[in-house]
Amino acid sequence: MELHLYEQIYVYIVQEIKEGRLKEGDRVSSEKELAEQFGVSRITSKKALEKLADSGVIKRIQGKGSFVADSIIGEQEPKHYSEVKPSLVPEDDKQLIGFIIPDFSDEFGLRLLRSMEKRSAEHNYQLIIKRTCGDRDEEKRAIDLFMGLGIKGLIVTPIHGQHYNSELLRLVLDRFPIVLADRYLKGIPVCSVYTDNKKAAMDLTRHLISKGHKKIAFLSPPEENTSTLEERLLGYTFAFTQEGMNLNKDYVLTNLKGTLPININGTAIESDKETIKHFLKQHPDVKAFVASEFLIATMLAQVIHSMGKSQEEFEIVCFDSLNDYLGQPIFTHIKQDEKRMGELAVDMLISQLDGAAVPELNIIEHRMVVKNNT
């Protein structure tokens, strides 16, 4: 098995001690020196020194550096990191990585979670998960909890909202290994893995236009500072421009809050249904809808039914639809590749842990699944 970069530094220093080039009390190279010597980041060299200190191989003295501890190395030369004297590899080192997500469901999130868990195990890491239910304070507490547990890296799907979490920003500035899944933070230099939501929304809107619809509405929660929703609205808008059509801004409804995780069990859904009903009465000629989320699409369908209107009059497209009992998609929709998104998010995090540079923006391909109305 190939060694992680920090493991290579660990074994190198152990060998230096075993072969007498470093003796008890000798100063060990600093994080900066090791990083330059091995061509890795200081995060990686720091991790190697921390492992050596935890194992009792070196002693770290604040303000002075790291020094070889008392003689503890056996005579057998280790062939592999895992074969170093057992006392040098702490048994309680669980190699944890964390995943913080607002919520997950059958239509989106569950396959992402399963994919991350499987990929983490393949890298010999354990994935621990915390749901925030879209609450900013809960997101902060989750970060604090995971850091207290000694996680090595963090994958986050940030909550919806107008302000970024200060704890998350601090970790980014401290260069703690982080990957954002399913969205990115504008202007923040952090690795992100996500769907091209602008192109996906354009695909959905142009699908409706190709079927002869000219009056098409867009339904969404508030999009401010949530990259997925901002991009979906942008894609919807661009589709009209590409087709040389005028966009009626009155058809854009972005004040639906019932599907946000923090409101999912409250009365906001009923309020949203009233908002949608009012919209349908105000714009009776609108027969096509781009819903930014599956739950909004289902709310819309329920309102149409409650008003005694025929479902056949309307066409609804959305993101991440479920199938009906016959295995057919309920709505024409964008299917995000959650499996690949989860795998790549973990891979990008492990690469950071190994000291490798990773790209900030990583786009996962999507596909459109068209409902067969026949």
Results as ranks from 00 to 15, higher is better:
E343N: 15
N265D: 10
V303N: 05
M299H: 14
F331M: 06
N265E: 13
R340H: 07
F279S: 09
G342L: 11
M341Y: 00
L344G: 05
F289V: 05
K309H: 14
Q311W: 02
D324M: 13
A301R: 14
T332V: 05
S306A: 13
I262W: 10
E315A: 13
N323G: 03
D285E: 15
L349A: 06
A288F: 07
G327V: 08
F319K: 12
A345I: 05
L295T: 02
L300D: 03
K273E: 01
K277H: 04
V317N: 11
L260T: 08
L295R: 05
S271Y: 01
H305I: 12
N265L: 07
D324A: 06
D320G: 04
I296C: 03
T275N: 07
T332N: 00
G266S: 14
N265T: 10
A345D: 10
S292N: 08
K257Y: 00
I330F: 07
F331L: 11
I269H: 07
N265I: 02
A288R: 09
M341C: 13
K257G: 00
I269V: 14
G308N: 06
Q328Y: 06
Q282L: 13
L349M: 13
Q336V: 08
I262S: 11
M348C: 10
I316G: 07
Q282W: 00
C318F: 09
K335R: 13
F294R: 10
D337N: 15
I334T: 02
K309S: 15
P329M: 04
M307A: 12
I269P: 03
G266C: 07
N265Q: 03
K287Y: 03
S310Y: 12
K281T: 08
I296E: 03
A288L: 05
F319R: 14
S271T: 02
I296M: 03
D320W: 01
E338N: 03
Q282A: 13
A291M: 06
P329H: 09
I334F: 12
F319Q: 04
I330K: 14
M341L: 15
T259C: 11
T267V: 10
T298H: 02
E270T: 08
L295Q: 08
A288W: 09
E274L: 06
E293N: 14
T275V: 13
D337G: 05
Q282H: 08
Y325R: 12
R340A: 11
V303S: 04
P261L: 02
M299R: 14
